[in-house]
C-alpha cells in the first residue's frame, strides 16, 4: 500500500504546499514535545477529521496496512519492555531472564507508538493532498537551489518511465521462460540480476538524453532562473505559515526559559 497524490478540490488540496509543509513541520515538532496520551490521540483525531474533509481514504488504508501496524506494535513492545520504572503489571519468564512490563513502560510505549502513528498520518495526508511537482516548484521559488529542485523533479519524471520499463523487462523475461514466482531464491536472484543490468543500461541512456536536452537549454548556466508561474499565498496560507512559525518559536522559547511546563507522562 503506497500513498500517492490524489487530485481534489478540498481546502487542503487548495492550500499552498509551503503552508502545508509548515503545518506538517510544526505538527511533528509539537507531537514530539507533548508526552501526553490524550493529546496524542487528539492530534490523531484531528488528522482523521482532515482526511474525512479531503474525501481521501488513503491515510486510513495506509495506517491499517500490515506493514504499518506491525511497526506500531514493534514500537509499542520495544518501549514497554525497555522501560523498567513503575509498578510491574506482567512478568514473562524467559530462559535467561524475565521481562517485566510496568504501567509506566506500557504508557510510555503507547505514547511513543501514538507519536509514530500521528507523524506518519500527517505525512501521509500531506502526500495525498500535495502534488510533489508543485511542492518542488514552491521550494525552488522560496530559495532552494533550482539545480537540486530539478534533480528531484527529474527523479519523479523518470520514476514513471522506469516503472514502465521494468514492466517491459519482466514481460520480456516471461516470454523467454524466466518466471520469478516459480524458481525459488536462486531464481529470484537470477531475476534480479536480469532486471538490474538492463534497467541500468536504460537509465544511463535516459541520462545521456537528458544531459543533451538540459545542457542544450542552458540548464545551470545562471545562478538563478526565472519562474513564470508565481506561488499564490492566500490569507489562510499566510496565517498558517505565520501561526506555525510563531508556535514553533514559542515552544522553543518555552523549552529554553521554562515559562509553562509542557505535559509529561503521569501514570
Amino acid at each position: 500500500m503506497m500513498v500517492k497524490f490524489e487530485k481534489g478540490s478540498s481546502f487542503l488540496h487548495r492550500l499552498n504546499p509551503i503552508a502545508k509543509l509548515s503545518v506538517v513541520v510544526a505538527y511533528s515538532l509539537i507531537v514530539f514535545l507533548l508526552a501526553s496520551l490524550r493529546l496524542e490521540l487528539l492530534c490523531i483525531a484531528a488528522v482523521l477529521v482532515m482526511e474525512r474533509i479531503t474525501g481521501s481514504r488513503q491515510v486510513c488504508a495506509f495506517m491499517l496496512s500490515r506493514f504499518v501496524l506491525a511497526l506500531v506494535v514493534v514500537v509499542l513492545i520495544m518501549q514497554a519492555v525497555m522501560t523498567h520504572s513503575g509498578t510491574v503489571l506482567i512478568t514473562v519468564p524467559l530462559y535467561f531472564t524475565r521481562l517485566r512490563i510496568t504501567d509506566a513502560g506500557l504508557l510510555n510505549g503507547m505514547v511513543i507508538a501514538m507519536r509514530f502513528v500521528s507523524v506518519v498520518m500527517v505525512g501521509a495526508l500531506f502526500v495525498a493532498t500535495t502534488d510533489p511537482v508543485d511542492l518542488l516548484y514552491s521550494l525552488m521559488r522560496i530559495g532552494v537551489p533550482y539545480r537540486y529542485g530539478f534533480m528531484a523533479i527529474l527523479a519523479l519524471r523518470l520514476t514513471t518511465v522506469f516503472e514502465q520499463e521494468a514492466k517491459t523487462l519482466t514481460n520480456a523475461q516471461k516470454m523467454r521462460g524466466l518466471n520469478v514466482d516459480e524458481s525459488g531464491i536462486r531464481g529470484l536472484m537470477r531475476c534480479v540480476r536480469c532486471t538490474v543490468i538492463p534497467l541500468l543500461v536504460c537509465a544511463l541512456s535516459h541520462v545521456d538524453d537528458l544531459v543533451v536536452s538540459m545542457e542544450g537549454r542552458a540548464f545551470g548556466c545562471k545562478k538563478t532562473r526565472t519562474f513564470v508561474t508565481e506561488d499564490r499565498y492566500g490569507l489562510l496560507d499566510k496565517a498558517l505559515i505565520l501561526g506555525c512559525l510563531s508556535l514553533v518559536l514559542l515552544t522553543v522559547l518555552d523549552i529554553v526559559f521554562g515559562w509553562y511546563p509542557l505535559p509529561h507522562l503521569r501514570p
Binding site: E165, T168, L169, N171, A172, Q173, M175, R176, L178, R193, C194, I197, P198, V201, C202, S205
Partner: peptide, 13 residues
C-alpha cells in the same frame, strides 16, 4: 510464441 520487443536493451539478460 517468440516475442521480440521494441527496445533491444529491454531483452538482453
Amino acid at each position: 510464441i517468440g516475442f521480440v520487443f521494441q527496445n533491444p536493451n529491454h531483452q538482453i539478460f
